[in-house]
Amino acid sequence: MDLLQEMSEALQSGNCEKVIALARQAVGTKVLPRDVLDNGLIAGMNVIGDKYKHHEIFLPEVLLAAKAMYAGMDVLRPLFLKDEMPTLGKVVIGTVQGDIHDIGKNLVAIMLRGAGFEVVDLGKDVPAEKFVEVAVQEKARVIGMSALLTTTMPAMKDIVERLKKRGLDSKIKTIIGGAPVSADYARHIGADAYGYDSVNAVEWIKKLTKKS
Protein backbone atom coordinates (compact mmCIF):
# COMPACT_ATOMS: atom_id res chain seq x y z
CA MET A 1 0.00 0.00 0.00
CA ASP A 2 1.12 3.53 -0.78
CA LEU A 3 2.69 5.15 2.30
CA LEU A 4 0.36 8.14 2.27
CA GLN A 5 -2.68 5.95 1.75
CA GLU A 6 -1.55 3.90 4.74
CA MET A 7 -1.17 7.11 6.74
CA SER A 8 -4.65 8.23 5.73
CA GLU A 9 -6.08 4.92 6.92
CA ALA A 10 -4.11 5.00 10.17
CA LEU A 11 -5.50 8.48 10.78
CA GLN A 12 -9.02 7.29 10.05
CA SER A 13 -8.68 4.59 12.69
CA GLY A 14 -7.28 7.12 15.17
CA ASN A 15 -3.89 5.42 15.41
CA CYS A 16 -1.64 8.30 16.52
CA GLU A 17 1.54 6.27 16.90
CA LYS A 18 1.24 4.84 13.39
CA VAL A 19 0.49 8.25 11.88
CA ILE A 20 3.58 9.71 13.58
CA ALA A 21 5.77 6.80 12.43
CA LEU A 22 4.49 7.00 8.86
CA ALA A 23 4.87 10.77 8.74
CA ARG A 24 8.49 10.45 9.89
CA GLN A 25 9.08 7.65 7.39
CA ALA A 26 7.55 9.69 4.59
CA VAL A 27 9.61 12.82 5.19
CA GLY A 28 12.68 10.62 5.70
CA THR A 29 12.22 9.15 2.23
CA LYS A 30 11.99 12.63 0.72
CA VAL A 31 8.25 12.77 0.25
CA LEU A 32 7.46 16.47 0.22
CA PRO A 33 5.87 17.65 3.48
CA ARG A 34 3.14 19.27 1.42
CA ASP A 35 2.29 15.89 -0.12
CA VAL A 36 2.24 14.25 3.31
CA LEU A 37 -0.11 16.95 4.52
CA ASP A 38 -2.43 16.92 1.50
CA ASN A 39 -2.45 13.26 0.53
CA GLY A 40 -1.96 11.69 3.95
CA LEU A 41 -3.44 13.78 6.74
CA ILE A 42 -5.99 16.00 4.98
CA ALA A 43 -7.05 13.15 2.70
CA GLY A 44 -7.72 11.03 5.80
CA MET A 45 -9.72 13.78 7.50
CA ASN A 46 -11.74 14.32 4.33
CA VAL A 47 -12.79 10.67 4.44
CA ILE A 48 -13.66 11.07 8.11
CA GLY A 49 -15.72 14.20 7.41
CA ASP A 50 -17.57 12.43 4.63
CA LYS A 51 -18.34 9.35 6.73
CA TYR A 52 -19.49 11.54 9.62
CA LYS A 53 -21.75 13.50 7.31
CA HIS A 54 -23.36 10.27 6.13
CA HIS A 55 -23.70 8.91 9.70
CA GLU A 56 -21.33 6.03 8.97
CA ILE A 57 -19.21 7.02 11.96
CA PHE A 58 -19.85 9.06 15.08
CA LEU A 59 -18.28 11.88 17.05
CA PRO A 60 -15.79 9.79 19.10
CA GLU A 61 -14.26 8.37 15.91
CA VAL A 62 -14.02 11.85 14.37
CA LEU A 63 -12.21 13.16 17.42
CA LEU A 64 -9.83 10.21 17.65
CA ALA A 65 -8.95 10.81 13.99
CA ALA A 66 -8.49 14.52 14.69
CA LYS A 67 -6.03 13.73 17.48
CA ALA A 68 -4.06 11.55 15.04
CA MET A 69 -4.12 14.38 12.52
CA TYR A 70 -2.68 16.82 15.07
CA ALA A 71 0.04 14.28 15.91
CA GLY A 72 0.95 14.03 12.23
CA MET A 73 0.94 17.80 11.82
CA ASP A 74 3.33 18.12 14.75
CA VAL A 75 5.83 16.02 12.76
CA LEU A 76 5.43 18.19 9.68
CA ARG A 77 5.31 21.64 11.24
CA PRO A 78 9.10 22.09 11.73
CA LEU A 79 9.62 21.22 8.06
CA PHE A 80 7.70 24.23 6.87
CA LEU A 81 9.28 27.63 7.11
CA LYS A 82 7.62 29.95 9.61
CA ASP A 83 4.19 31.05 8.37
CA GLU A 84 4.53 28.86 5.32
CA MET A 85 2.45 25.91 6.46
CA PRO A 86 0.19 25.58 3.43
CA THR A 87 -3.45 26.40 4.17
CA LEU A 88 -6.72 26.92 2.38
CA GLY A 89 -6.99 30.23 4.18
CA LYS A 90 -7.29 31.64 7.65
CA VAL A 91 -10.45 31.50 9.74
CA VAL A 92 -10.96 33.44 12.96
CA ILE A 93 -13.36 31.59 15.20
CA GLY A 94 -14.83 32.11 18.65
CA THR A 95 -17.82 31.93 20.96
CA VAL A 96 -19.46 35.35 21.19
CA GLN A 97 -19.39 37.61 24.22
CA GLY A 98 -21.41 36.42 27.19
CA ASP A 99 -21.29 32.79 26.15
CA ILE A 100 -18.85 30.26 27.52
CA HIS A 101 -20.08 27.16 25.68
CA ASP A 102 -17.31 26.14 23.35
CA ILE A 103 -17.57 22.44 22.55
CA GLY A 104 -19.32 23.11 19.22
CA LYS A 105 -16.86 25.83 18.30
CA ASN A 106 -13.96 23.52 19.17
CA LEU A 107 -15.37 20.84 16.87
CA VAL A 108 -15.60 23.28 13.99
CA ALA A 109 -12.00 24.38 14.61
CA ILE A 110 -10.86 20.74 14.59
CA MET A 111 -12.67 19.95 11.36
CA LEU A 112 -11.38 23.16 9.73
CA ARG A 113 -7.78 22.29 10.57
CA GLY A 114 -8.41 18.80 9.29
CA ALA A 115 -9.62 20.24 6.01
CA GLY A 116 -6.46 22.34 5.65
CA PHE A 117 -7.51 25.71 7.00
CA GLU A 118 -5.50 27.74 9.47
CA VAL A 119 -7.61 28.54 12.49
CA VAL A 120 -7.18 31.43 14.90
CA ASP A 121 -9.28 30.32 17.86
CA LEU A 122 -10.21 33.29 20.04
CA GLY A 123 -11.82 31.03 22.63
CA LYS A 124 -15.05 31.91 24.39
CA ASP A 125 -16.77 35.07 25.67
CA VAL A 126 -15.09 37.07 22.89
CA PRO A 127 -16.02 40.77 22.44
CA ALA A 128 -17.35 41.75 19.01
CA GLU A 129 -14.51 44.15 18.27
CA LYS A 130 -11.91 41.48 18.94
CA PHE A 131 -13.35 39.24 16.20
CA VAL A 132 -12.99 42.11 13.72
CA GLU A 133 -9.60 43.33 14.90
CA VAL A 134 -8.01 39.89 14.86
CA ALA A 135 -9.55 39.05 11.49
CA VAL A 136 -8.01 42.22 10.03
CA GLN A 137 -4.61 41.66 11.67
CA GLU A 138 -4.46 38.03 10.62
CA LYS A 139 -5.81 38.71 7.13
CA ALA A 140 -8.49 36.12 7.78
CA ARG A 141 -10.94 35.29 5.04
CA VAL A 142 -13.73 34.14 7.32
CA ILE A 143 -15.04 34.88 10.80
CA GLY A 144 -16.88 31.99 12.46
CA MET A 145 -19.16 32.82 15.39
CA SER A 146 -20.76 30.40 17.81
CA ALA A 147 -23.49 30.92 20.42
CA LEU A 148 -25.52 28.53 22.52
CA LEU A 149 -27.70 31.09 24.24
CA THR A 150 -30.53 33.10 22.75
CA THR A 151 -29.35 36.05 24.84
CA THR A 152 -25.92 36.09 23.22
CA MET A 153 -27.10 35.72 19.61
CA PRO A 154 -27.37 39.51 19.05
CA ALA A 155 -23.57 39.74 19.44
CA MET A 156 -23.34 38.00 16.06
CA LYS A 157 -25.30 40.80 14.42
CA ASP A 158 -23.00 43.32 16.06
CA ILE A 159 -19.93 41.64 14.50
CA VAL A 160 -21.51 41.52 11.03
CA GLU A 161 -22.48 45.18 11.28
CA ARG A 162 -18.99 46.21 12.41
CA LEU A 163 -17.54 44.52 9.32
CA LYS A 164 -20.06 46.28 7.09
CA LYS A 165 -19.41 49.68 8.66
CA ARG A 166 -15.70 49.31 7.97
CA GLY A 167 -16.34 48.10 4.42
CA LEU A 168 -14.76 44.74 5.18
CA ASP A 169 -17.74 42.51 4.50
CA SER A 170 -16.70 41.70 0.94
CA LYS A 171 -13.24 40.62 2.07
CA ILE A 172 -14.10 38.86 5.31
CA LYS A 173 -17.01 36.47 5.10
CA THR A 174 -19.07 35.46 8.12
CA ILE A 175 -20.59 32.18 9.25
CA ILE A 176 -22.64 31.49 12.36
CA GLY A 177 -23.46 28.31 14.25
CA GLY A 178 -24.91 27.05 17.51
CA ALA A 179 -28.14 25.57 18.83
CA PRO A 180 -30.35 28.71 18.85
CA VAL A 181 -29.34 30.08 15.44
CA SER A 182 -30.54 29.11 11.99
CA ALA A 183 -30.15 29.87 8.28
CA ASP A 184 -33.02 32.34 8.67
CA TYR A 185 -31.22 34.11 11.48
CA ALA A 186 -28.03 34.24 9.40
CA ARG A 187 -29.98 35.92 6.59
CA HIS A 188 -31.70 38.23 9.06
CA ILE A 189 -28.41 39.58 10.46
CA GLY A 190 -26.64 39.61 7.09
CA ALA A 191 -24.17 36.79 7.81
CA ASP A 192 -22.92 34.92 4.75
CA ALA A 193 -23.68 31.41 5.98
CA TYR A 194 -25.05 29.17 8.73
CA GLY A 195 -23.38 25.88 9.53
CA TYR A 196 -25.74 23.37 11.12
CA ASP A 197 -22.86 21.16 12.26
CA SER A 198 -19.08 21.06 12.07
CA VAL A 199 -18.91 19.30 8.70
CA ASN A 200 -21.49 21.61 7.17
CA ALA A 201 -19.58 24.61 8.52
CA VAL A 202 -16.41 23.42 6.77
CA GLU A 203 -18.34 22.92 3.52
CA TRP A 204 -19.68 26.46 3.73
CA ILE A 205 -16.29 27.93 4.54
CA LYS A 206 -14.79 26.15 1.53
CA LYS A 207 -17.49 27.73 -0.63
CA LEU A 208 -17.03 31.18 0.91
CA THR A 209 -13.28 31.15 0.44
CA LYS A 210 -13.57 29.97 -3.14
CA LYS A 211 -15.90 32.82 -4.04
CA SER A 212 -13.94 35.60 -2.40
Binding site: L59, P60, L63, A66, K67, N106, I110
Partner: peptide, 14 residues
Amino acid sequence: LFESKELALGSMLD
Protein backbone atom coordinates in the same frame (compact mmCIF):
# COMPACT_ATOMS: atom_id res chain seq x y z
CA LEU B 1 -8.45 17.59 28.10
CA PHE B 2 -9.39 19.75 25.11
CA GLU B 3 -6.35 21.95 25.63
CA SER B 4 -4.06 18.92 25.67
CA LYS B 5 -5.72 17.71 22.44
CA GLU B 6 -7.40 14.74 24.13
CA LEU B 7 -10.41 15.72 22.07
CA ALA B 8 -12.38 12.49 22.10
CA LEU B 9 -11.92 11.97 25.82
CA GLY B 10 -12.75 15.62 26.56
CA SER B 11 -15.91 15.39 24.51
CA MET B 12 -16.87 12.09 26.16
CA LEU B 13 -16.32 13.56 29.63
CA ASP B 14 -18.48 16.52 28.62
